[in-house]
Simulated assay, not measured.
Amino acid sequence: MKFKFTCDICNKQVKRGDKFRIESDQYDDDSTLYGEFGAMACKACHTKVITHINSIKTDAAAAA
């Protein structure tokens, strides 16, 4: 489904595009968490975030 929205990361006005929610949560214990960060993102920003996360995972695996 295509949406009209403003990307929270790049502030681009998306007139008809894919909409992604990026969240980062912190856990207090095994059953409680609270939101640290949440953003609506366009496809371009979502792809950049996923690529960066995969790069961090690769670097961490190589360092271990």
Rank of each mutant, 00 (worst) to 15 (best):
K43Y: 11
D30F: 10
N54H: 13
S24C: 12
K12Q: 07
Q26P: 00
T58R: 14
K2E: 01
H46P: 01
F5L: 05
C42M: 10
H52R: 14
K15T: 12
T51Q: 14
N11G: 02
Y27E: 01
I53Q: 07
E23V: 07
F20I: 00
A39D: 04
I53R: 00
C42W: 04
G35H: 08
S55Q: 13
C10I: 02
H52L: 13
A64Y: 03
V49L: 14
K19R: 15
M40W: 02
A60R: 10
Y27M: 03
D25K: 15
V14L: 07
I22N: 02
K19P: 00
F3N: 14
T47Y: 07
T58V: 07
I9F: 02
H46L: 01
N11I: 01
D28S: 12
K43D: 14
A61K: 15
D29A: 08
I53N: 04
Y27L: 03
K57C: 04
V14N: 08
D25V: 09
D28A: 13
A60K: 12
G35L: 09
S55E: 11
T51S: 13
F5S: 00
D28C: 06
S31P: 03
D18C: 06
S31T: 13
G35T: 12
T51H: 07
C7M: 04
D30T: 06
F20R: 03
A63P: 01
N54S: 12
F20V: 02
D30S: 08
F5M: 05
L33N: 09
S55R: 08
T51W: 04
K2N: 12
E23M: 11
T58C: 03
V49K: 02
